[in-house]
């Protein structure tokens, strides 16, 4: 696992550099004309974007792995459990009340929305929910949050407010400032570091909740910590960049191949894979020859939805076979 992790981190560094430097031609031209301006573009446009892709992707991967370990379910993830749509609703309602100008208010609103969605899910589906119950409850919460978000948009005070909110909802890493990057990055980093300290109890959950308790792990406390931490990390990222789907589902599934199915030990590789996937999706969205930049949420959904369908078919096939 150590070798794979160092391979992953070198890939991550390479992807991050590519994300800074691509597309190369306009940057090179700018460097020839005006060196200071070129550095400015690099530091104020491309760096926040690459950093946001790194941190948001890592946050989605790590939180996905933690939520899957907690629910003992490979299909749990921030988007399927309604965390992301709850955060989006919280942010839209906040924006509706006080506008998009204050990132702190947006973050608080998004974190509160995510927290509400996760708490509702635990209440509805229970801590060790069967896949069907979990997906149904998550679907219901996502649908409710989505409908309320649409309602908030329909009641938007002006067409500009509507457009702003719609654009943000599609998920975008473009044109964020370094300050905004910090607003998403610091809570996300706090979440990842804290989750990494919960690896052992999360691994012991693989033996079942009762055995984990008999081994001295406080499962109720663990559950509360994971719910609060993922709401904090994912909520803060959603507040700045909008909702981005599927990374939180896909990254942990790859990561558990590296952690030999240990649900807790998958958190670190899931963070690395999530970051890698989101940087790659961002590069695709920028470099796709379509004349304009695609919303990144669309790219991850287009790539992630087929994978999810494959996963469902694969699980059905495996359940049918056994």
């Amino acid at each position: 696992m150590r070798a794979t992790l160092s391979l992953l981190s070198s890939l991550l560094v390479a992807a991050f550099l590519l994300s800074l430097l691509l597309p190369w031609a306009p940057l090179a031209a700018l460097f020839e004309q005006d060196r200071d301006l070129a550095w400015g573009v690099l530091a104020e446009l491309r760096l926040p974007r690459a950093a946001l892709a790194l941190i948001y992707g890592a946050a989605l991967g790590a939180s996905g792995a933690a939520i899957q370990a907690l629910f003992a379910n490979p299909l749990a993830s921030p988007d399927l459990t309604g965390t992301t749509s709850g955060a989006a609703l919280g942010a839209v309602v906040t924006a509706y009340l006080i506008g998009f100008s204050s990132p702190i208010a947006l973050s608080v609103g998004a974190v509160a929305g995510a927290l509400g969605a996760l708490a509702l899910l635990l209440l509805l589906a229970g801590p060790r929910a069967e896949t069907a119950t979990l997906l149904l409850a998550g679907l219901a919460i996502s649908a409710l949050a989505g409908a309320l978000t649409t309602l908030a948009l329909a009641l938007a005070p002006s067409p500009f407010a509507f457009y702003d909110a719609y654009d943000w909802l599609m998920g975008s890493l473009a044109d964020r400032s370094l300050a905004q990057t910090a607003f998403a990055g610091v809570p996300a980093l706090v979440m990842i570091v804290w989750l990494l300290r919960l690896v052992r109890p999360l691994d012991s959950l693989a033996l079942g909740e009762e055995v984990a308790q008999s081994l001295g792990h406080d499962i109720l406390g663990l559950r509360i910590r994971i719910v609060c931490l993922t709401a904090l990390g994912v909520g803060a990222c959603v507040a700045i960049c909008g909702a981005i789907g599927f990374i939180g589902l896909v990254a942990p599934i790859f990561a558990r191949r590296l952690s030999h199915s240990h649900p807790g030990r998958a958190i670190l590789p899931a963070a690395a894979i999530g970051a890698l996937l989101l940087i790659a999706a961002d590069l695709v969205s920028r470099l796709a020859p379509l004349g304009r930049t695609l919303p990144i949420g669309v790219v991850t959904a287009l790539l992630g939805a087929p994978f999810f369908l494959w996963l469902v078919a694969h699980m059905r096939w495996r359940l049918g076979a056994s």
């Binding site: 003992a72 379910n73 691994d203 012991s204 693989a206 033996l207 079942g208 081994l215 558990r256 030999h260 199915s261 240990h262 649900p263």
Partner: peptide
């Protein structure tokens, strides 16, 4: 019942 497909040795070590 077990939810994660761990290797037998890894499962024993979790104890």
């Amino acid at each position: 019942e077990l939810r994660w497909p761990l290797a037998a040795r890894d499962l024993v070590l979790l104890g």
